[in-house]
Structures are given as structure tokens and as C-alpha cells.
């Protein structure tokens, strides 16, 4: 019975071909068409985008890409730095927290879990624009204003409740019997966590980490307010700059969006490699 890890999937348990095909076609159309519009727009010059943004037939040009690639490169590097550090911080802090919220070791702790979950949900309801001014003061007091560190701290705190809530179901998928076995063997929390839970959480960590990376990459309210003035802008702020109350450079916006989203795709594909099916299979027999 060694069909685990088979690349093409088992014969059973897969959707019927027809349904699968139809769904994939619909998805491809609904997600590819807007992407094509973006690509088309990116190949228009400033004038073409201004006078005929909806035109499908036009003389494409690389001028827009040439204009934006200089600023795009610097922004991408900065965003990579911010997102990588924030994602690492969220993972390091969030994974143990998610684990802790799945272990009902006593009724008292169970009550703690309920309270903490409620607080995490509340924290997500605070509108982000309204947190800027208080956080600005907090970061200033800690002398973290204007630095990447300060921004990372703010972003980590922003995404942490969401990440913990999202990691929890993955942590819950660890079978209870493993905990019982480990307890009987005399293992403490640390051993259980490191030797059993973490390996089984690889799916969850990879998924949530790539989601967090993408979210932090796109975050621009804190990025605009908390970074050093005059320094390089991250991608999110650079994109927002293309629209002012007076004018909009659609072609540049779309070209920048394309160029600066490619690294995200790379990160996602890298994380996807780590997802394997049927991870718990070998552990319980």
C-alpha cells in the first residue's frame, strides 16, 4: 500500500475528469483575462494609455517598462527585505502560539485558549488607518521610527493574529494519538513540539508563510508612514504613487504591478514545493 507520495495522485479520490476540466477552464478564463488586460496596458505608452486604455489593437512598446524598471528594482529589494524578515518573525512567534492554542491540557488552559482566540479576533477588527497615529507615537518613543525594524515590528503585529488563527487548523490536524503516545513515553512539551508537531506542520507553515509574505509585501499604510523619508520606497507605496488626485498613469501602474509581482510568484512556487500530500500517513499505522 505505498501510494503515498505518488506524484500524479491516486486513481481514487480524484474528481471526475469532466468536472475537473470545466472548473479549470472557468478559472483560467476568469483569472487570465484581467491579467491579460494588465499585460496589454503595460505595453502601451503614456499617450496610448491616456487616450485609449481599452483598445486591444495598438502598437506595443517597451518604453513603459524601460521607464519603470529602475525604480522597480530598488523597490523590489526593499520589499523583499521587509517581507522576508516579517514573515520569519511571524513564523517564529506564531507557530508556537498556534500550537499552544490547540492543547487543552487542563480546563483552566482551555478557558485561556477561548479568551486568547477572542482577543485575536478583536484585534483584527481594529481599522488599520486608525492605528497609524498611535503607532507612530509608540515607534517614536522606542526610537524605531523611520527604520525597517520599526516597520517590521508594526507589520508583524498586524499580521500575527491572522497567522495564528490560520495556523491553528493545521496544528489541530496532528492526531491526538500521537500526543498520548508521546505523553506515555515521558516526553515534555518541548520534545513533542519539536519532534512531532513541527514536522507535521510543514504544510501549514509553508502555506501560511507564503500568505503572510504576500500580505506584508502589499501592505502600504504602515510602509508610507513609518519608513525614513527620502529613502527607497517599497513596492506597495511605489504602486500607490502612480495615482494622484490629478492624474493616473495606468500603463506605468500595470507595468510596475507585473514586474514587482514576479518575485511573489517565485516565493510562492518555492513554498509549494514543500507541500506534500498525506503527510500524516507514515506516523500512524
Amino acid at each position: 500500500m505505498s501510494r503515498r507520495g505518488s506524484r500524479t495522485g491516486a486513481q481514487v479520490g480524484t474528481p471526475p475528469r469532466v468536472l475537473s476540466g470545466i472548473v479549470k477552464v472557468i478559472l483560467t478564463v476568469t483569472y487570465l483575462v484581467p491579467l491579460l488586460w494588465i499585460v496589454i496596458e503595460a505595453f502601451k505608452s503614456d499617450n496610448q494609455s491616456l487616450t485609449a486604455p481599452d483598445a486591444l489593437i495598438f502598437a506595443p512598446t517597451l518604453a513603459t517598462f524601460r521607464t519603470v524598471i529602475g525604480t522597480a528594482t530598488g523597490s523590489v529589494l526593499l520589499s523583499l527585505l521587509i517581507a522576508a524578515i516579517a514573515t520569519a518573525a511571524v513564523t517564529v512567534v506564531g507557530v508556537p502560539a498556534a500550537y499552544a492554542l490547540t492543547r487543552r491540557t487542563s480546563p483552566g488552559w482551555g478557558r485561556v485558549i477561548a479568551v486568547v482566540l477572542t482577543i485575536l479576533l478583536i484585534l483584527q477588527m481594529v481599522p488599520q488607518p486608525m492605528t497609524v497615529i498611535p503607532l507612530y507615537g509608540v515607534l517614536a518613543r522606542w526610537h524605531l521610527l523611520g527604520s525597517v525594524t520599526g516597520l517590521v515590528v508594526a507589520d508583524t503585529a498586524l499580521v500575527l493574529p491572522f497567522s495564528i488563527l490560520l495556523l491553528r487548523p493545521f496544528a489541530l490536524a496532528v492526531p491526538k494519538s500521537l500526543y498520548e503516545a508521546a505523553a506515555l513515553d515521558g516526553a515534555g512539551n518541548a520534545q513533542i513540539f519539536l519532534r512531532i508537531v513541527i514536522p507535521l506542520l510543514r504544510n501549514g507553515i509553508a502555506t501560511v508563510a507564503s500568505i503572510v509574505f504576500i500580505i506584508v509585501w502589499g501592505e502600504f499604510i504602515y510602509a508610507t508612514n513609518f519608513l525614513t523619508e527620502g529613502s527607497q520606497l517599497p513596492v506597495s507605496a511605489l504602486l500607490a504613487e502612480q495615482i494622484s488626485i490629478y492624474s493616473a498613469n495606468w500603463n506605468r501602474l500595470m507595468a510596475l504591478a507585473l514586474l514587482t509581482s514576479l518575485p511573489l510568484l517565485a516565493v510562492f512556487l518555492f513554498a509549494q514545493r514543500r507541500l506534500t500530500a498525506g503527510l500524516t500517513l507514515g506516523a500512524v499505522r
Binding site: I85, A88, A89, V92, S147, T149
Partner: peptide, 30 residues
Amino acid sequence: MRHLPTRWFAGTAVVAALVLAAGACSSSPG
């Protein structure tokens, strides 16, 4: 005997170092 979660501490230390290094990298405002 409790086994110290060295890998976890190592991971945390690396992240902390990265965060501090990033802070040193950026210029101070003003």
C-alpha cells in the same frame, strides 16, 4: 532530562539578529 529546544532558540536568535541588523542598515531620520 529536559532537552533544551536549541533549534528554536537558534531560530529566534537569527530572526532577532536580522531585525536588529535591518535597523542598523537604515539611516536615521532627520
